[in-house]
Design a binder for these strands. Structure first.
Lengths: 149, 149
DNA sequence: GTAGGAAGTGGAGCGCGGTCTAGATCAAGC
DNA sequence: GCTTGATCTAGACCGCGCTCCACTTCCTAC
């Protein structure tokens, strides 16, 4: 049983059957999926592996349009590897940038949670609103973001 | 000139004036923004600081609904710090999770770009399709994702 | 006083990434 | 044969986060 039904693929990839059909319609798959005599889809191992790559790229924020572009390139066969590389590399850079951004946000959030945790530990009465209260130092440039919240 | 017009706030926060009005309508701001006699918004420093927090939280993927909930809590004043903490902390955890996820994706993408770069360096003739070709080891569990692309 | 630009309001529209519906067909088990 | 459940297609619909439109009002400068 080396080929899978759409339901089985949905189960093991985490995509819904709806999403699987949608991806196919949108040209995100490299080859046309094989069908049974009755018209049902039969996914080969390669199809599922490709889907797993798609899922990773999507998870990391690649828009469907780029994913389609990548699938188009692969579908065209050898000869356009430089373009595939550019596409993936540009995406990797965006992912790096996004990670950096998230880490910055994370540090602000962590600092604010520390302010609250500290406040709660000292008891409800201690004032978050008192600007002179000693609280953990703020990260980044701005140092007075806590006064209101 | 300690208060700013909506245009000035847009310029320094990077939000559009449309978005600023939208955020206000959606209850994402803590206090009602002051108005001039003629009805124009005048943003105080605190308003802008709050917006900067909102922007960070949004950037890091907090949905507007949660942001509104947080604004509601702050608006209600002292006494609900524990809930604010829970909200922020839950978000921080999601951000951490997201960073982890992105890093995993990044390593797959980096590996695939390495495969392509390697291929191009050896010249267009070398086969990406040859499963026996020595290529950098794949990260994670799956080791045969390259054969198709 | 009038021109021009910024800002006001309410509400429609949009781009993305799916999700769901309707109604038909297929396939396995009794 | 019949039921049950998975799958099929085409196309409508949705939630989110804005964005834009139409039209009015305000304000500054000439």
């Amino acid at each position: 049983m080396t080929e899978l039904s759409i339901g089985e693929v949905a189960e093991r990839t985490g995509l819904s059957v709806h999403a699987l059909r949608f991806y196919e319609r949108e040209g995100l798959l490299v080859g046309p999926v094989r069908r049974t005599a009755g018209g049902r889809r039969r996914y080969a191992v390669l199809d599922v592996q490709w889907l797993e790559i798609c899922i990773r790229l999507r998870e990391s924020g690649m828009p469907l349009a780029d994913l389609r572009r990548f699938a188009d390139l692969v579908r065209q066969g050898p000869g356009n590897e430089a373009e595939r590389l550019r596409l993936l590399d540009a995406h990797r850079q965006r992912v790096d940038e996004r990670i950096r951004e998230l880490e910055e946000c994370r540090s602000l959030i962590a600092w604010k949670t520390a302010v609250y945790a500290d406040h709660l530990e000292r008891g409800e009465a201690a004032g978050l609103w008192d600007p002179t209260a000693g609280s953990p130092a703020a990260p980044g440039q701005s140092s007075s973001l806590s006064s209101r919240s």
